[in-house]
């Protein structure tokens, strides 16, 4: 505790006895400071130690590992060879391309859906609005493994509900998990579904935060519902949308469970994270996997930083 600020400063006095008094006062303060430091770090110790062992040191190790050719056990230093290889590796280019397609598929659709749902949910209903929220938010608690399993069932080629449903509209559905580009689309749909609750909650919170008098003023000016959404809700929601954008892009880079369960990481659905797992645990190439992990890390840090800077600005702006 800051004893130094809460205690009045020692009153200046004259004489020898007072000087020793003042010294002991300074001594005590130094002791207090020391004990405060010890106390503070004792509280921090569990978290600091755990993070050091399982986050900070592994970051360094991961970089070191990316400069070696190693499987579990032996390793040889190869410098930046792993990065050069990845740079020239067509398969890795495919992985990046797949990741890009995956992100471009999940993020815009996910956010657009969330905004539409949030606008609908923000309309004041006297009854049952809690129930609709419950139904729409519920995917947030479903794990990636369960999402994968549920959708594998829905995509079932013969008795799957999705193709049955499409059949009602006269559409002959594809065999979702094996045919052409459809496996990636299947995973995109599953991931959009899993994220929908989270995204809608954030979007709804953003909408609730908008000053209600603006709508009143717009109504007085004769703006209809669409105008109000277009010129008030969406512009004022832009910080929230940006937050959602970054969070969802990062989230889409971290999707693993659905890919593993739905397609077992077949080549057309192998994103950057799956590729890391595949390289390390199926090809036993830790060095190459770590190089890929580091590339992914830089990407995520860049995105987080962008989020930090832009949101920081927005906060000042408001």
């Amino acid at each position: 505790m800051d004893q130094s600020t809460s205690n009045p400063p020692p009153t200046p006095t004259v004489g020898l006895t007072n000087k020793t008094k003042r010294e002991s006062e300074a001594d005590r303060q130094r002791k207090n400071k020391l004990s405060a430091a010890i106390e503070g770090y004792l509280y921090l110790a569990p978290t600091l130690i755990a993070l050091t062992i399982f986050v900070f040191i592994p970051v360094v190790q991961s970089f070191q590992l990316s400069l070696t050719r190693s499987s579990f056990g032996r390793s040889i230093d190869v410098g930046f060879d792993n990065y050069v290889r990845l740079f020239n590796d067509d398969r890795y280019h495919d992985v990046i391309w797949t990741t890009l397609k995956f992100t471009m598929g999940t993020v815009p659709i996910g956010i657009a859906l969330a905004v539409v749902l949030a606008i609908a949910l923000s309309y004041p209903l006297k009854h049952l609005s809690w129930f609709y929220r419950l139904l729409i938010f519920v995917p947030i608690v479903i794990s990636t493994a369960v999402t994968g399993v549920l959708f594998k069932w829905i995509y079932h080629p013969t008795v799957g509900y999705l193709n049955h449903l499409l059949g009602f509209f006269g559409i002959d559905g594809p065999t979702w998990l094996t045919q052409g580009d459809w496996p990636l689309v299947s995973i995109i749909i599953a991931v959009v579904w899993r994220q929908i609750g989270f995204n809608t909650i954030i979007a709804l919170a953003g909408i609730q935060n908008i000053d209600g008098t603006l709508y009143e003023a717009a109504k007085v000016d004769g703006a209809n519902l669409w105008h109000r959404i277009r010129h008030i809700t969406l512009p004022l929601l832009s910080p929230t949308l940006f937050f959602l954008l970054i969070i969802n892009v990062i989230g889409s880079l971290q999707v693993f469970g659905e890919i593993d369960i739905l397609t077992n990481g077949s080549i057309s659905t192998r994103t950057m994270l799956y590729s890391i797992y595949f390289e390390a645990f199926r090809s036993q190439n830790n060095g190459g996997a770590s190089a890929q992990a580091f590339i992914l890390f830089l990407l995520i840090v860049g995105l987080s930083f962008m989020q930090f800077v832009v949101v920081g600005k927005k906060v000042h702006y408001q």
Partner: peptide, 9 residues
């Protein structure tokens, strides 16, 4: 730091 970076070490 994403878990994806640290899970191999």
């Amino acid at each position: 730091v994403p878990f994806q970076l640290t899970f191999i070490p």
